[in-house]
Amino acid sequence: MTATRTIRIGTRASVLARTQTQHVADALGASVQIVPIVTAGDRSAASVSQLGGTGVFVSALREALLAGEIDVAVHSFKDLPTAPADGIVIGAVPVREDPRDALVARDGLTLGELPQGARVGTGAPRRAAQLRALGLGLQILDLRGNVDTRLGKVSSGELDAVVLALAGLRRLGRDGEVSEILDPIQVLPAPAQGALAIECRADDEHVLAAVAALEHADSRAAVAAERAVLAALEAGCSAPVGALAVVAEGDDGPEVFLRASVTAVDGSAAVRQSATGAVTDAEGVGRRLAAGLLADGADQMMAATQESGRDGESST
């Protein structure tokens, strides 16, 4: 009798990454081994833009995958570069967690209840730009570190609030600390936020068959539309780009409804558009929306952000 093959799953060493990977391991229900991999982003206290932008949390996992040291890599989808990697495919996109951003504030205050001058921390230029654009008179401060470190800035009184991805808080069981889930009308999340990407070697049929059971077609379509915006804008994780797609039943079958925005880093201007199309053309919907954003001046806003980004904010 042939022995069952153990599937080795690579993960970053952070608590959130290990928690996400454990969810995938449990869902596979097979013989699995979790293998921690230290990435460049984990080794440095520098911001993502200082380290080189998109991919700093990804390349070490992909190298281990191609070297045969692991069979599966689990990523937060928003960390992946938009360009495909040779020899690697996304074997599955599981059901997406809530993609919205969340505010954790002292005394349970909401965004509108924070006083002028309140200190709000975030590591993402996208969040910082959109928060400034609300015109609430908040101090938006750069923030680096894991979830515990960030939440600790509020409990210690160093900050009045922080903004984080709701998905990560939920996966860690920390969503009870959320003061407010931010409406995407105010703050659009990052493309692919809340989604996981399960990468495998393109020629590993055994593993591809095993992870296929975790695929959620609507989540993949939504993320494909959002990331097509990012790719068409030629923007990385340090760009102030927000995007959110949902799949719903239309007159002619399932459709993707996509919203996206680009915001000036100082919050002084923004362009926002929406588009709809067939699920089978999710990427096309994203590309068409990106063209509209560029026609409205999105490229100028992103160029200004790249200049200011040399001072370095992270994308977490």
Score class of each variant (00 low, 15 high):
Ser76Val: 06
Ala105Gly: 08
Val48Ile: 14
Ala40Phe: 00
Gly41Cys: 04
Asp79Tyr: 00
Leu141Val: 14
Val247Asp: 10
Leu196Ser: 09
Asp101Tyr: 01
Asp160Thr: 11
Leu80Gln: 05
Lys78Pro: 00
Thr2Met: 07
Leu141His: 02
Ala202Ser: 14
Pro99Ile: 02
Gln139Trp: 03
Ala209His: 11
Arg5Cys: 01
Ile90Lys: 01
Arg310Trp: 09
Ala167Gln: 06
Leu136Trp: 07
Arg171Ser: 09
Ser14Tyr: 09
Cys200Tyr: 02
Arg132Gly: 04
Val279Glu: 10
Asp148Cys: 00
Ala60Gln: 08
Val241Asp: 07
Ala124Asn: 13
Ala190Asn: 11
Leu109Thr: 04
Ala275Val: 08
Ala270Met: 09
Ser14Cys: 02
Leu182Ala: 05
Ala298Arg: 03
Leu164Thr: 10
Leu131Arg: 03
Ser14Thr: 15
Val207Ile: 10
Arg126Trp: 08
Ala197Glu: 03
Leu182Cys: 03
Thr6Val: 14
Asp26Met: 01
Arg174Gly: 06
Thr39Asn: 02
Pro84Val: 07
Ala27Ile: 03
Leu138Val: 07
Asp86Val: 10
Ala212Tyr: 02
Val74Leu: 03
Gly152Ser: 13
Glu113Asn: 01
Gly152Cys: 09
Glu97Ser: 09
Pro189Cys: 04
Thr280His: 07
Asp107Cys: 00
Gly176Tyr: 09
Gln186Glu: 15
Arg62Gln: 13
Thr316Arg: 11
Val163Leu: 10
Glu69Tyr: 01
Gly284Trp: 10
Ala260Leu: 06
